[in-house]
Design a protein around this nucleic acid. Structure first.
Lengths: 203, 203
DNA sequence: CTATTAAGTAATTAATTGCTTACTATAATA
DNA sequence: TATTATAGTAAGCAATTAATTACTTAATAG
């Protein structure tokens, strides 16, 4: 009996592997049901070895949220940057968000899971940070759109932000319920047409 | 050591008690963490006694979803019925939904929890039924609004339904994240103003 | 070539989980 | 009043959980 030449990787790369594995597992089942044993199997390690790279299970969730924070926000910012006008920027951000969750189906499951924790865990604080940065981005685009005369200055911009984020979340939720039997991209495009109506106002 | 005169209630009333207890517990913590022991304590019974009234834990969740189905839909239908115009009906339904989840904070947690199960469990099918009935109600109101000339006939009514449900879900989600530090009612009113802009279109 | 550091293992731990079962006590009814 | 169906109890089971332990082995610096 001989173990196949087991590979020894640095904690840094193992952490990255573990984060990727969690995202993959979360795409298939509820994050609450993902055990450290499952994660270990996914990265071809023993369960105990996981704790060589993270002090405890919570630290793993936190690391995943941090990953989502940087990756999601980066892609949203990039989308906004490359757009010609503020309104085109909003649409680009909308579609980029949809694209991100389509590409990483485990992410919404993770977010929903943390939402349910009533206490202010470090993970939930991480989600808060993401939403805060998101709101800033939207406010900037909405203000620009007003400045360039693309939308009605009377529009309630706080509500416009809530409606924007809510629309995306709602689409994601309905997609999860339909078990992926919903074409997210076209659904998003149709919904965004209405969103434009909402913020253009009387203009 | 003597047990205090233990009360013997019918299975029917115990089931109702258990459903109410689950809703209350779900308002405080994640449904995935609610154990049958917790439920038993909430209704002042032993853990084993719970299984005299439900065959297993899943049956409890299903019963709760059925409760939500009838109570939520009833209150939405009532709101639509008592409104003067189709658009007023939409607003009434919007506010009734917000009111319902405000009054029963455990409900959205339960729904989110079931969303995460990838398989088509009986509970998830129950959630599906609710959404289906919801869509029917919205379609009826939107068609009526078109017939009475209150909205632009060009409006994509499927997208309008998705945006409606998505807006409510998004509001609920942001409220959960803010740990109730968000005034749902006023936030809902502000968002609904924008929703009206969206579906009125060029009119 | 050797000593040190750290990645990985295998086994085990205490705590919890949903659920079952043998038993008791009570309410309804005949 | 005796019978009977069943609500409720108490104890415990099998399975699973996150975490810890003692040990092994690979990589690397001196």
């Amino acid at each position: 009996m001989q173990q196949q030449t087991r590979v020894r990787l640095s904690t840094e790369t193992r952490q990255a592997e573990i984060i990727a594995a969690v995202l993959k597992l979360a795409a298939e089942r509820s994050p609450a049901q993902i055990t450290t044993g499952d994660i270990a199997r996914a990265v071809s390690l023993t369960q105990g070895a996981i704790f060589r790279h993270f002090p405890n299970k919570d630290a793993i969730w936190l690391a995943v949220i941090v990953w989502v924070e940087s990756n999601l926000l980066d892609s949203l910012e990039a989308a906004a940057q490359n757009a010609a006008t503020p309104l085109a920027g909003l649409q680009a951000v909308f579609m980029a968000h949809i694209g991100f969750v389509t590409q990483h189906p485990g992410v919404p499951r993770l977010i929903f899971n943390e939402l349910q924790q009533p206490d202010d865990s470090s993970v939930k604080v991480g989600v808060w940070r993401i939403l805060e940065a998101y709101r800033q981005l939207l406010t900037r685009l909405l203000n620009d759109a007003e400045a360039t005369g693309q939308i009605d200055p009377e529009i309630d911009k706080g509500a416009a932000g809530m409606l924007f984020i809510g629309s995306v979340q709602g689409l994601v939720m309905q997609s999860m319920l339909a078990n992926g039997a919903l074409n997210m991209k076209t659904a998003a495009e149709r919904v965004f047409v209405l969103y434009l109506n909402a913020i253009r106002g009387t203009r």
